[in-house]
């Protein structure tokens, strides 16, 4: 099957700064994908490259089997809601819909009108006078009514209050439930991601740390705690995602299927938020000595 997004050796440089390096990624179609990672990790750059708004410095990216922005047909297949869900402040809601229908060959006017009506937005109102939640909903409406196969959203709910956020995600999920739509959204809000996404991509330091279905991630990651030991001496075939030690105790977040049978070790589930955090801080381990509570950081041997 054609991947929604496939990247190989993808990199983007601004001047001397690499915003994305050696990015290898394959996102299957039909998912709602959460793109998470710290600020400056390259999320916006990756979405910009996938939407065709940016050109790669190195490597390749294909979106739905074609180069992003390759032509009008490709542009019609991909919707993009940029950071801050921008709309044209001076134009009315109805103007937005008219503009959408002129610019997009596959524009679904009935869907756009239905959404605006259900949201209770006055079509004559200038977008600049809408609430933040309504502006975001208008931007989503524009993205959905072009009937894309892939919808990219950059931090769509970051600036919204909890109610507006929930309403936005309800609308997005309703659209996803109709089928035929792949969604990639970046977000800092892991609880939201956990609710709406079934596929997770963790981007740290301009590299992809992990990309997999959420269920697989939750099933294969555990937190294990026990007497202090070197991560290299852990039993079984496990990948240590993160490690922290006190003088006597070690806590690891590990990826691997085999359960730990050693009774001196406690194995626990790990939630998505902790899992993401473990990947965000994968190279350092915190050492806390009992004597003075002093913290030092050292590199894990890998």
């Amino acid at each position: 099957m054609t991947a929604a997004v496939r990247a190989d050796g993808l990199g983007k440089r601004y001047g001397r700064h690499w915003a994305l390096t050696d990015c290898a990624l394959e996102i299957p179609v039909g998912h709602v994908v959460g793109l998470v990672g710290p600020n400056g990790a390259g999320k916006t750059t990756l979405l910009g490259l996938a939407s065709g708004q940016l050109a790669p410095t190195t490597g390749d990216i294909t979106v739905l089997g074609d180069r992003p922005g390759a032509g009008p047909e490709q542009l019609a297949r991909v919707g993009f809601v940029a950071q801050g869900t921008p709309v044209y402040d001076r134009l009315s809601v109805a103007d937005h819909l008219r503009l959408g229908s002129r610019l997009n060959p596959g524009w679904d006017d009935a869907l756009a009108r239905r959404r605006v009506q259900r949201l209770g937005i006055d079509p004559g109102r200038p977008a600049g006078r809408l609430s933040a939640g309504q502006r975001a909903q208008l931007a989503l409406t524009m993205g959905l009514a072009k009937r894309p196969e892939l919808l990219l959203l950059d931090e769509p709910v970051a600036a919204l209050d909890p109610l507006a956020r929930r309403e936005f995600l309800q609308g997005l999920m309703e659209a996803a439930a109709e089928g035929g739509l792949t969604v990639v959204l970046s977000s800092h809000l892991v609880p939201d991601v956990e609710r709406v996404c079934d596929y997770l991509v963790v981007l740290v330091d301009s590299r992809v740390r992990v990309a997999a279905p959420v269920d697989d991630l939750l099933a294969t990651h555990h937190r294990i705690t026990g007497p202090r030991r070197d991560p290299a001496r852990l039993p079984g075939d496990r990948h240590v995602v993160s490690a922290s030690h006190t003088d006597r105790q070690s806590t690891f977040v590990v990826r691997g299927d085999a359960p730990v049978h050693d009774p001196t070790w406690i194995t626990g589930r790990i939630g998505l938020e902790d899992l993401v955090i473990a990947y965000m801080d994968p190279t350092s381990t915190t050492v806390r000595t009992e004597r003075d509570g002093h913290r030092t950081t050292l590199r894990v041997l890998r």
């Binding site: 039909g30 998912h31 709602v32 929930r166 995600l169 309800q170 997005l172 999920m173 309703e174 996803a176 439930a177 109709e178 609710r195 709406v196 996404c197 079934d198």
Partner: peptide, 14 residues
């Protein structure tokens, strides 16, 4: 599925 999704804002595949 659509009703649940619209009510809870969760992934339809869930």
């Amino acid at each position: 599925v659509k009703e649940v999704v619209a009510q809870l804002a969760i992934n339809p595949n869930t």
